[in-house]
Amino acid sequence: MDKMEQMLLWFELHSLQERYVSVLDNDRLEEWPTLFTEDCEYGVIPKENEDMGLPVGVIWCNNQRMLRDRVVSLRHANIFEAHSYRHMTSGLQITPVDADTVDMLSNYVVVQTRANGESQVYQAGRYEDRVVRTAEGWRFQKKRAIFDTSRVQTLLATPI
């Protein structure tokens, strides 16, 4: 891969990450599943489990239909206080696996603002992603949000 190809790849994957964050932070949840492949895996996993090799997470989906189900449930079934997220990401590392597959690692901090207007660091962690090239562009085949924060304040509705 020459320098131009590397720059292009970095630009494309960074754009994917920025789009992912924008969808979650600006209440466009219905777009969220479209950034994944049909056979995707998505998980939000406490670091303490990950460190011990234990599988349980607060969310775990192993296909895109489950992501859509979660959005419908959040929109129409679940009851929670109105809130917003602001994701800050940093430290993006890109490791190509083959021409159409790349592993990504990055940090995230989510600041949550609840109805009373107070903003708090809600979760800090890292994304471990695998993205693949599709006809629609790069998509997440695997996204694991492994959070350092030891506990979830009140509840977790909007995905990370």
Partner: peptide, 22 residues
């Protein structure tokens, strides 16, 4: 695998439990 999938029902983000702490 079914147990892990159904973990989505309960816990902090559980479909049928997240409302309890609210």
């Amino acid at each position: 695998e079914l147990r892990l999938k159904q973990a989505n029902l309960v816990g902090p983000a559980g479909y049928i439990s997240m409302e309890d702490t609210e």
